[in-house]
């Protein structure tokens, strides 16, 4: 049996994050860590260490689907694994993300705060119990929007975990697709520049 490391318990952080958001929507801001850290690791380090080791959500699905046994453990549908679906979903996800940023900007510019969490980009859940008086309305608006994004992706992840293998979400996770794309581009660039260097060293024009 492999020795457990501190990052093998990050699923707890994911579970705590989702629970805290139910009590105070402003905790949703913490979710930005799951956006910024993988991007930084991919851009600077050129690896998917976040997905491989530190993704609390992936670990949570592994725990629920694997050890607790909520998953059917079937191979995911072929379309889910195709490049067009993965990059299409990334495009859709990013479009919805920027629309959420736009609605935050509108509140910043003076529009009314909408106290609702949008699930699956369609269903608006009234969220009137949130205490948002202590912050600017745009900060609260971003929290509502971002918590909706996190809950939506968790719901999709749980659904595909039950239907297919525990970490089926990882196949079409927008962050995973994006970081893999960044790593591939970075490696291609490095390989090209290494090729040029070796050509120079060999005296090739």
């Amino acid at each position: 049996m492999k020795k457990k490391r501190w990052y093998d318990y990050l699923w707890m952080a994911s579970a705590v994050y989702l629970t805290l958001g139910l009590f105070n929507i402003l905790f949703a801001w913490l979710g930005l860590i799951c956006f910024i850290v993988p991007l930084m690791i991919a851009l600077i380090g050129g690896s998917k260490a976040y997905c491989n080791n530190y993704c609390g959500r992936g670990q949570l699905f592994e725990l629920l689907g694997g050890r607790i046994g909520l998953s059917r453990k079937k191979n995911p549908a072929t379309f889910l694994r195709s490049a067009w679906f993965r990059y299409g979903f990334l495009t859709f996800f990013m479009t919805m993300f920027f629309l959420m940023i736009d609605s935050t900007y509108l509140v910043f510019a003076g529009a009314d705060l909408k106290q609702a969490v949008t699930l699956l980009w369609v269903f608006k859940l009234p969220w009137q119990w949130a205490h948002t008086a202590m912050v600017s309305p745009w900060i609260a608006q971003f929290a509502f929007g971002f918590y909706g994004v996190m809950l939506t992706s968790t719901m999709l992840g749980i659904l595909t975990m039950i239907l297919f293998k525990p970490r089926s979400w990882c196949v079409y996770c927008p962050m995973g697709t994006m970081t893999q794309g960044i790593c591939k581009l970075k490696n291609r660039k490095e390989a090209a520049s290494n090729g040029r260097k070796s050509q120079k060293n060999c005296g090739v024009a």
Partner: peptide, 24 residues
């Protein structure tokens, strides 16, 4: 080539025989 480099295989392997090459 369909590998998404998620790292699920790393945890599954009892011999540490799998690695993710440059996040790809």
């Amino acid at each position: 080539k369909e590998c998404v480099a998620c790292g699920s295989c790393l945890k599954g392997c009892p011999r540490n025989a799998v690695a993710i090459y440059k996040g790809s």
